[in-house]
Design a protein around this nucleic acid. Sequence first.
RNA 1: GGGCGCGUAGUUCAGUUGGCUAGAACGCGGCUGUCACAUAGCCGAGGUCACAGGUUCGAGUCCUGUCGCGCCCACCA
Length: 958
Amino acid sequence: LGYPGADQHPADEPAWVTVATTRPETYLADTAVAINPHDPRAISLRGLSVKLPLVGRVIPIVEDSYVVLPEAMARNEEEKNDPKAKFATGFLKVTPGHDKNDWELGQRHKLPVINMMSPDGNVSDKHGWTDVGSAHLFVGLSMMDARKKVVAEFKSHGLLESVKPYRQSVTYSDRSKAQVEPYLSDQWYVRVTDPRMAASANAALVADQRTDQSPTRKQGSAHVEAGAPSTSEANGEEDAKGGRTPSLASASGSDGDGSMRFHPDRYAKTFEQWHDNIRDWCISRQLWWGHRIPVWSCELEFEEGGYCADEHACGLASALTRAPNDRLNDSVNKLACVFSTPIDRWQPLLWSPGMETMPEDGKHIVYICLLTDDPSDWCDEIGCPYDVREDLAKNNFVQDPDVLDTWFSSALWPLSTMGWPAPTEETKGLLEAFNPSSTLCTAREIITLWVSRMTMFNRYFTASSGDTPSGLADSATSPACGGGGGVVPFRDVFIHAVIQDGEGQKMSKSLGNGVDPIDIIQTHGSDAMRFTLCTMSTHTQDVKLQVDLICPHTGEVFAPKMVTNKDGYRVPAVIQDSPKDKSKKMVTAYGVASGEVKASAEMPLARNTSSKFDMGRNFANKLWNASRFAVSILEKSKQAETPDTHAGWAAHTDSEDGPDEAAQASWKDVSVVDRWMVSRLATATKEMTRALDEFQFSAYAQTLYDVIWRDFCDWYLEAIKPTVASDARQRTVLWNAMGTLLRLAHPVMPFITEVIYERLKELRMGAGELPWIGLGAPMHQGKATKEGLLCHAGWPQVSSDAVSPEAEAAFARVQALVTAIREVRAQQNVQPKRKVTLNFPASIAAFVTLNQTLVGTLAGIDVFSQGDPKDEGVAFAFEGLQLRVTNLADAVDAGAERARLTKQVADLEKSAATFEGRLANPGYADRAPPAMVQQTRDQLAKVMKDLGAAREALAKLG
RNA sequence: GGGCGCGUAGUUCAGUUGGCUAGAACGCGGCUGUCACAUAGCCGAGGUCACAGGUUCGAGUCCUGUCGCGCCCACCA
């Protein structure tokens, strides 16, 4: 667009500037044309003006480095590569009323601001634009129509230089789909750039989660320099806290600066960076619902000497200002705050003659912010009860029509839910007890929306009163401080992953790919759901969850047929067949959400679930069955047991002296599998405790799963079957093991464990808890009782000697032998019920004899025979020795055996090569830790022995 | 535009200061109606840890780059 010059050019050429724009219609509100000071044309245009066509407004040419230089004038690569440079003319039309960048540029050059638009988005001369000139033809048009007409008019006047295609992003309202037009309006803001807000929030982070920051680019840097004494290097942590002044006693405790931690760590950065770049927070929202902003306003006229023309209104405002006993600085009892324009600073309204800010026309807008509108709060003011709002309305005060941003109210949550600011009988003491709370668990996007605001507000409002005299204190008059003090709202913030659908798409209503927990509980149970979710709760950002359907006809869960919809999303086809009966149909949530189909009696809606939760369901089922089995064993022996027949294991007394010697002595010769189980429980408890402490929920769940299913069910319960009926000590270990497992599982599976516990606690074995073996956590608040719930029971505590590397190693040998035998049996198709014979060499006779019962039970051996009946049965390698399984019933399948051994030899050769290669590396022995080198040598030796045995067996097969 | 995350078995994912002969679940193949559990048990197959460099005695793990996928915030990082 061409703008003709308004003044004569010095060289007698008409001034003429060409601006490039994507929004020509906004020229009606232009108040300047800008040029880059480095533009060579700038000098000759300095001080000149141009005249807007039709409007006739004369506007200045200003210089501002914001203006992009045209490609031809670019001074460096960066400027040249600016995509705008290609289109730039070097002149920028400046429309402060309808563009954010132009607004800021306008502020720099003190340009007037014109609003040419009505709130409904049409060109208007009724909302601040008055110098319409000959531009009437645009008034009333929509912005889009005005755009076309402006271009047409410029063209007809010969002012249109050219039209070029240009690609840019444009914002649209999500709800109305209308294009968003920048528009000036009055809004309320919270000055979160105050160091007591944003900087204080960052100071709340624990020291190791604060990043190194250069003070020059920090918002609160001025305060750091002004308010805080420089700190020594040794005291670097104090420095990182943002220079808190020593007077802030309230923040000196453990819940002030440096006491809030994010999990995982990386989210501290999100939190911190957001505050580093925060801007004042607009809290006005144009919605019909919500907390209405409690500010009333009225334009009042003042006469000479500050005398107010409207006595009633001024009197009211004055009365509120003067609140009883001049409570202006008493934040506790203050009922209202009164202030007036200009609101560049929050200030009390000045009434007295000589008012400094008296505007020329004598008109002030007076604002009254009610800190409470409860009539009973106004008792000692002007009668009781007194509805101040009525009085305000009568005196032409109008309440702001906007409501508070919901996050404003939410930010007060840790305070307001605990009775703040005025505790009632019911809420008394809550704030002290639960602020800070321990852990906030939330999603990523909430870090900025909610976590940040809670932290800022909580710290601000809990700061000592000397620091913040009132919620409306003017920061400019407050003592400088870096942190602002106050306590954090919570000590830990756990940011969990977000569940996406099976295609990696976000779950949403419109895609119908969300899964309702209630539906999962219906298909899988709540314990199963909770456990599975816990397993998925890793420290990654997102997790995929396969979304399946529940057939409304049969209740089956199945994977739906997927299609790609018109927007490119993978969605379930809107109509699905019942998996077993194709004649029965159903509609999907996506089908309904997209409006393509409707549910009916013939085609009901298939609800979503996920087969992912099968894992939790199976696990719960496993725990249930194992418990039933254990309980039945204990019940049987309980019936036969009298209190003093608990032979061999002295009962634990609750004496302070700890376990008696007899008990400890009898513990020493407990069977390998019992000792192993205790050790495994102790190890698992340690791992799980640590995992929970570190918010590693997935690790916790996985360890629980393994110790219950793999160790307890697969090995322990199988191993004790033949002996438990006659071994009272084993039953005690079993009872303790069950109790420990239930306590470990309770947080994720509260219902099933509670039910099992109810029966288990009735079966308390004579010896009860065995604290001296490491399973001694209080079964119920210090001692086992028949009363009480598992949820009251103590968390298992592990004594250091509960873990036995010897027992774990010993049982690992048993497991290795059993597995080797099982492998031979499977390979030879030996019937599971059939008992076979194990032939072993003399060198491991002691080991075999000691564990004969265990191995016999777990591997199906009935005869143990020393020696090697050559050519019979099948040979296999164990610890480098050759053992043999015989009495396999059928003829040995030599082919299967050869295949097995060949594979084994290949695997062992591969391992051997790895270790040999490592040891052959000259640097390895020199530089790796000696223990590491020795370990590799041992591993190689073992592999070589096994390899020898396997080769020998293979050779014998021929 | 900025920030962050992820690419490891057919699939979904673990793998915490580098020590791994890379694990689990589901799925797959074989055997089993067995007395806690078939929502189960036993056995097995299946992986150049996205790609390319680098550091190191040693890299799934640390660094740099490339290529994919995704999330969050957006005139400001």
